[in-house]
């Protein structure tokens, strides 16, 4: 099992100038390591739609890599997106799934099919060009540069240790301004307007 903090450090080393779309637990950990916050979009309360937002960016800017940091519970809410992504074959699309088997944000209840679902297998069957699964950070760190050098769509499943939030979900007027602001910051960075 891989610690979230270790996984995001490894991913950030391979980021380059990619746009990064995160959701749920991944957003907090990514925020601690990201060095290009004007290229980050954290999807809050998105009910599994990070992969769809990422596909939109990837189709709109095929010259730039797009990294999606998804969760297993989130992907299960939007499982058809695997087929939608594969149907477009975006060569710049890199889809990471943090697979801890639970809905961490709501207290750790198991997701349907936990310990049975093979997300890399689902991605391959949907038509992703490549898919991988890692359970130790050393192998992830060794293999990821080669994976990111190949064209997508790629799915990388990360068997993760569960981290439960310490407090309630952040729901303030300020927190709800972050996602629209992030979309506009990315748009400004990518287009200049």
């Amino acid at each position: 099992m891989i610690e979230y903090g270790d996984a995001v450090k490894v991913i950030s080393k391979e980021r380059g100038d990619a746009v990064v779309i995160t959701t749920m637990t991944q957003s907090g950990f990514w925020g601690q390591v990201s060095t290009h916050k004007n290229l980050d979009i954290g999807i809050a309360n998105g009910m599994g739609k990070a992969s769809s937002v990422g596909l939109g960016v990837a189709l709109g800017r095929p010259d730039r890599k797009v990294i999606v940091l998804d969760g297993d519970g989130s992907l299960l809410m939007n499982l058809g997106s695997l087929v939608t992504v594969a149907g477009q074959q975006p060569a710049n699309f890199y889809h990471f799934v943090f697979d801890n088997g639970v809905y961490a944000i709501t207290g750790g209840q198991p997701v349907p099919g936990h310990e049975m679902v093979d997300y890399a297998g689902l991605a391959r069957a949907a038509g992703y060009r490549n898919a991988y699964s890692f359970a130790d950070v050393e192998t992830l760190a060794t293999e990821l540069p080669g994976i990111m050098a190949k064209p997508g769509p790629v799915l990388v499943n990360i068997k993760s240790k569960t981290v439960l939030p310490r407090g309630p979900v952040d729901q303030t007027w300020e927190s709800n301004k972050r996602m629209p602001a992030a979309l506009r910051a990315v748009r400004k960075t990518l287009t200049g307007s």
Binding site: I21, I41, S52, L59, G60, N78, G80, S81, Q88
Partner: peptide, 23 residues
């Protein structure tokens, strides 16, 4: 460009991503 989706709930998030990319 036509982007077919499997379920309608994907459509607006994909539109949001395309808009962020300047489309």
């Amino acid at each position: 460009t036509v982007v077919p989706v499997c379920r309608e709930g994907e459509a607006i998030p994909i539109a949001a991503g395309l808009w962020a990319a300047g489309k």
